[in-house]
Design a binder for these strands. Sequence first.
DNA 1: TTTTCTGCAAATCCTTTGCATATCC
DNA 2: GGATATGCAAAGGATTTGCAGAAAA
Lengths: 146, 146
Amino acid sequence: MRLKGKKTTLDDFRRKCREHNLSMTPQRLAIYQVLMNATDHPSAEQVFQEVKTAFPDLSIDTVYRTLATFSQIGVIRVVEGYGQAKRYDPDMESHHHFRCTECDRIVDFREKSFDNLPIPAIIKNQVVVSHVKVILEGVCEQCRKG
Amino acid sequence: MRLKGKKTTLDDFRRKCREHNLSMTPQRLAIYQVLMNATDHPSAEQVFQEVKTAFPDLSIDTVYRTLATFSQIGVIRVVEGYGQAKRYDPDMESHHHFRCTECDRIVDFREKSFDNLPIPAIIKNQVVVSHVKVILEGVCEQCRKG
DNA sequence: TTTTCTGCAAATCCTTTGCATATCC
DNA sequence: GGATATGCAAAGGATTTGCAGAAAA
């Protein structure tokens, strides 16, 4: 169940960092790559554990700081969560989420018809909407079987 | 900007508690009422502060336990968050959210055309979707002015 | 009276911060 | 070399848990 579309490339990432005067450190690169290759919207702790195998000295606060920085410069997004830890998504294109209410797995999907839903007048009249997302909730295959 | 629809009544609440063999304690009642009257999807801490004025002895862990229990028996819902604290919504009818990315305010709205969006096949084929919600993000009036 | 709930206190998990050192450009 | 980032350690906020006394059914 892996439905990622075109992803931000590493080059895009480097460019964005340069734009914002961020040093390109090995930690940042590694953290971004882990995120890019992840399909499960990992938490800071999960990113930490994975990057740690390549950088045993890495500390968790660097991961937190880095993820915060990344989301500030717009290369990743913090996604909706219902529990404890924040979760991150490197996919900056318009897409939507299915979330399993049992295991909290989040699955991305594209659906053009969801991208431009007509904004209800009652909202439109008061605020400027910059991002529309649909969240589907239910129980995933694995949890249904388990 | 208060768009609540028909809400679960106190009687419904009592009935649900009885169904699940939950004692009807003054704390539970007070917590539920605070939630019912809130328009801003408060955190546990916010609920605590408000109920505390009526029950000075109330402790925060009771609030946490109570909110967890309420969401288990389906009288409230934990709503999507992007930050630290969980936030709760006593409105169990189908509705959607606008969220201000500046101040994190969440506003409910009803929109029937959003309630039955066609589930994309790629999701429908793998999982059973039980809840569909649309989240609009942007900047609210107050934050735009401020 | 038996079961369930609450308050207290302590523990745990997630995240942030200050500071000195190391690294990037 | 100057600016920025990292690691360490400690602090802070959010949430959970064990337990004994208190309240509900």
